[in-house]
Nucleic acid binder design. Sequence first.
DNA 1: TTTATATATTGCAATATTACGATAATAAAG
DNA 2: CTTTATTATCGTAATATTGCAATATATAAA
Lengths: 107, 107
Amino acid sequence: MGITKTQMFNSDQNELAIIFKVLAHPARIAILQHISDQKACICNDIVTEIGLAQPTISQHLKELKSIELIKGEIEGKKVCYCINLEKWKEVQVLMNSFFDKAKLNCC
Amino acid sequence: MGITKTQMFNSDQNELAIIFKVLAHPARIAILQHISDQKACICNDIVTEIGLAQPTISQHLKELKSIELIKGEIEGKKVCYCINLEKWKEVQVLMNSFFDKAKLNCC
DNA sequence: TTTATATATTGCAATATTACGATAATAAAG
DNA sequence: CTTTATTATCGTAATATTGCAATATATAAA
């Protein structure tokens, strides 16, 4: 159907999946790299750096904001986006705790 | 368009995005947890545990196999899936190196 | 060989995502 | 107030994903 049966899974599984989904696009990876490299944090500069249309970048930024990986500060008519380090670390811990649980005890 | 402009991004960005995309579904998170918890590694047991239809689970397993996070061993008429620990750790390292690069040097 | 069991593949309907043009909203500059 | 610059939102076309019924494939059991 194209619709994920969210109700069949627990909230941890759904939360992790949502985080992974936000990260599951090369443009969003690139945006995060540009922001954290300080190459560009102003929306329009990111548009120039990456080369997708402005509405497309704006949409990607919105998705990154939706899980609070970045925050946008309004500076006059520009918006400066930066990494939300608190959430950033939280996400990293979450992923690592998922990965650390895997054991090699299979058949 | 719905099509990702892969050619605009470098191979690291695309590789990371593909890995995140495979992980971006609660059913696939659940499957990995079941396998690594040893609750179920036989395909049909996973179907019973999770409650999605057999073809659906089979498709999710295929996607997990596509990036080699799991491998499936044929045991008679059954297939035992287990975590590919080598790739598993490789993916974890890749993610951490991405997350470790973020700095708080923004405006 | 026939039947039962386990998994994979195909085809399709429902829904989601990606990208962008057009346009709205907002704020600084003139 | 008007213009310009920057970002967000809306609408929409193209494509991708999800889930499952039907079916194919493969092995074991009878």
